[in-house]
């Protein structure tokens, strides 16, 4: 949605704002994190599940409604719960119950996280300060699939600012096609490259972009 018009004013909250506005928001966050321990999906699959909500619902749902809907879709889509089990749960232990996140493991799981950096043999294709051009913001591996190149920077010219080393590639990882780590870069784009009427042409937007999302400009 980057660059979209029509969303109205931002409503800054006070810094004393509660972490969770409603009790059920907290439950959604917690159930989403806890079910991650079942290891039936990864973060990219979860993001893709949220993006797969029908556009009308995606627009109508609040933030945590999208989360809970995506979780239900994954549980059914991956065959972990059948539609019947979702509606009238039996009290039968699921075969995955041995992976259930236990209270004793919560602190450990949250503090460990899940780093996405990986070692690869390939050296980075781009160097800091190199000028690059992004490709179309569509998944090349899976039709209609997940990608992390935002639409507003597709086919735009930018400059490599930082090389972050190789990271898990979301376009394949979201679709069970493997991690296929590739080099990740922070790329800066001038506001004048992105927008017809920039507020200040020298302002920049920095975006984290995987290597295969772009090409060197002189190859265009």
């Amino acid at each position: 949605m980057g660059g979209r018009f029509g969303d109205g004013a931002i409503k800054p909250g006070s810094c004393e704002e509660k972490t969770f506005k409603e009790r059920w928001h907290a439950r959604v966050l917690a159930v989403t994190l806890a079910t991650g321990s079942l290891r039936q999906w990864n973060l990219d699959m979860m993001r893709h599940a949220r993006e797969c909500l029908p556009p009308k619902e995606y627009a109508a749902f609040s933030y945590y409604e999208k989360w809970i809907a995506a979780l239900a879709d994954l549980l059914v889509g991956k065959g972990i719960l059948s539609p019947d089990e979702l509606l009238s749960p039996s009290s039968q232990m699921h075969q995955l119950s041995r992976r259930k996140l236990l209270i004793a493991d919560v602190a450990d799981v949250l503090s460990k996280g899940a780093p996405t950096s990986r070692s690869v043999n390939a050296s980075p294709k781009f160097l800091v300060d190199q000028i690059v051009k992004t490709r179309r913001a569509e998944n090349k591996f899976f039709y209609g699939g997940h990608t992390r190149l935002p639409k507003y920077v597709e086919r735009c010219v930018g400059k490599i600012e930082i090389c972050h080393g190789a990271h898990v590639f979301p376009d394949t990882h979201a679709h069970d096609l493997g991690e296929r780590p590739e080099h990740l870069y922070t790329v800066s784009f001038l506001a004048s490259e992105l927008w017809q009427s920039p507020e200040n042409p020298n302002d920049t937007v920095c975006v984290d972009i995987w290597e295969s999302y772009m090409e060197p400009l002189n190859d265009q």
Binding site: E22, W24, R27, V28, L29, A30, V31, L33, A34, T35, L38, S62, Y64, E65, I68, A69, L71, A72, L75, I80, L81, E85, L86, L87, P89, S90, S91, Q92, M93, H94, L96, S97, K100, L101, L102, I103, D105, V106, A107, L110
Partner: peptide, 26 residues
């Protein structure tokens, strides 16, 4: 949405896939 998360939590807990106390801890 409140009932939605409740229904999902119930289904997951009954099948032994979540521990409600772990959710409280998170």
């Amino acid at each position: 949405p409140e009932l939605k998360v409740k229904a999902l939590e119930t289904a997951l807990a009954k099948n032994g896939l979540i521990d409600p106390a772990a959710l409280d801890e998170i």
